[in-house]
Computed example of a mutant assay.
Amino acid sequence: MAQFSPPSDPRLESLSARPSLPLLADLALWVATAVVKWDCRQRSRRALARLSPEHLKDIGITPDMADHEVRKPFWIP
């Protein structure tokens, strides 16, 4: 089955590439990264749910595959 992964956000990559940060800053960065990933997954899955069977066929996904992806909770990659 195809794995759907949202594009990474370069703003978050630049933050995580910095040298070590204080513990609280690391925690805040982890939370911010998780929230951005979750939001991106949810938006992508909503968009996938709105595609017609013809559009799904164009991108090489069956309706069953799309349904399986759309039913996943936002925290599951």
Rank of each mutant, 00 (worst) to 15 (best):
L15G: 01
W30N: 11
F4H: 12
C40L: 11
V35K: 15
V35T: 12
L48Q: 10
V31G: 00
F74S: 14
K57N: 12
D64M: 09
Q42H: 07
C40V: 05
L12M: 03
G60R: 04
K57L: 14
P6W: 09
D26I: 01
C40I: 03
P10D: 05
D58W: 12
P73W: 08
D26V: 02
R41W: 01
G60Y: 01
Q42A: 06
W75C: 01
S8T: 01
P73Y: 09
L23Q: 10
P6Y: 05
P63Q: 06
W75R: 04
P63W: 10
K57H: 09
A47R: 14
A32K: 12
G60V: 04
W30D: 09
R18T: 01
K37G: 09
A49K: 10
E54W: 10
L56K: 08
V70F: 06
Q3H: 13
S16V: 09
L27F: 03
P77W: 12
F74Y: 11
L29C: 00
L21Q: 15
R71T: 13
P6L: 03
W30Y: 10
S5R: 12
A66N: 15
H68R: 15
T62A: 03
T33W: 08
E54M: 12
W30Q: 03
D58G: 14
S52E: 12
P22C: 06
L51N: 11
P6C: 04
K72D: 07
R46P: 03
S20T: 05
S5G: 05
V36R: 09
S44P: 03
L48F: 02
W75K: 00
A66G: 14
L56W: 13
L15V: 02
V36L: 06
M65W: 13
F4A: 14
H68F: 15
I61H: 13
W30R: 09
S8M: 00
A2H: 15
V36Y: 03
P6E: 08
L15A: 02
S52G: 08
R50Y: 04
S16E: 12
M65E: 15
A17K: 07
A34D: 15
R43H: 02
L48Y: 10
L48T: 04
R43E: 05
A66E: 14
F74Q: 11
T62C: 02
P77D: 01
R46E: 11
W75D: 00
A25G: 03
D9A: 07
D64R: 13
V35H: 12
S20Q: 01
K37I: 11
A25K: 06
A25Q: 12
L21D: 09
A17L: 10
L24P: 05
R50I: 05
E54C: 03
L27N: 07
S16M: 08
L29P: 02
P19K: 01
T62D: 02
P53L: 05
W38F: 13
R50D: 14
A34C: 08
D64Q: 14
F4G: 13
W75S: 02
P53G: 08
L48W: 09
L24K: 11
I76P: 04
A28N: 07
F74M: 04
